[in-house]
């Protein structure tokens, strides 16, 4: 039996080009975030490329599968492939602090406090109309003034972010 290498060669060419075309279509599909939106479930034990944080290191310690916040503020970067209208943040936490804790999203412009802050709650909703999309990323902040004195009394077990 004679092997037709010319045919195999054209087959390889076709498969490679078709695979690349399919991959590019997939990327555009992801970019458009076609569907209901995007859900990110973040916990210290889970790793996802699309979410970075809580950071910076040193302000946060991972204890028993939870983030123990030692110093503030801490940040969370979330990849947003396109602009969204709303972000719904659901937090699972233990807060033993006496002072208020705030969660916010970075906004555009040069405001003295460039974050749209809300008091910590189990579910928070942020309007993203004025949010800063820097390199297609949204930045969330957790600010807990006075946490240095009451070290480690704010524990975050998981964060769920829905971009709608």
């Amino acid at each position: 039996m004679k092997v037709d290498f010319k045919r195999i060669y054209f087959g390889v060419k076709f498969v490679v080009i078709a695979a690349f075309a399919v991959f590019v279509v997939f990327l555009f599909w992801q970019k458009g975030a076609v569907g209901a939106g995007i859900n990110y479930n973040v916990a210290p034990t889970t790793t996802t490329k699309f979410v970075y944080g809580l950071y910076p290191e040193g302000r946060v310690e991972i204890v028993e599968n939870a983030w123990k916040i030692k110093y503030e503020p801490v940040y969370l970067n979330v990849y947003a492939p396109r602009k969204f209208k709303k972000a719904q943040v659901t937090l699972k936490y233990k807060n033993l602090m006496e002072s208020d804790v705030f969660v916010g999203v970075k906004v555009k412009g040069n405001a003295p406090v460039p974050y749209y802050l809300k008091k910590l709650d189990k579910t928070l909703s942020f309007d993203l109309a004025g949010a800063a999309f820097e390199k297609n990323k949204l930045q969330f902040i957790i600010a807990a003034p006075g946490i240095e004195e009451s070290k480690g009394t704010l524990i975050i077990e998981s964060i769920k972010i829905q971009l709608l």
Binding site: Y9, V16, I17, L27, Q30, K137
Partner: peptide, 30 residues
Amino acid sequence: TTQFLFKAGFIFWLILAILELLMPGFVIYY
């Protein structure tokens, strides 16, 4: 085949790099 894979690989890489520059996060997360 080696020649084709090299050329295609380089051109596709270039296309993706340009897309990544235009739309940050478009490629590198995948």
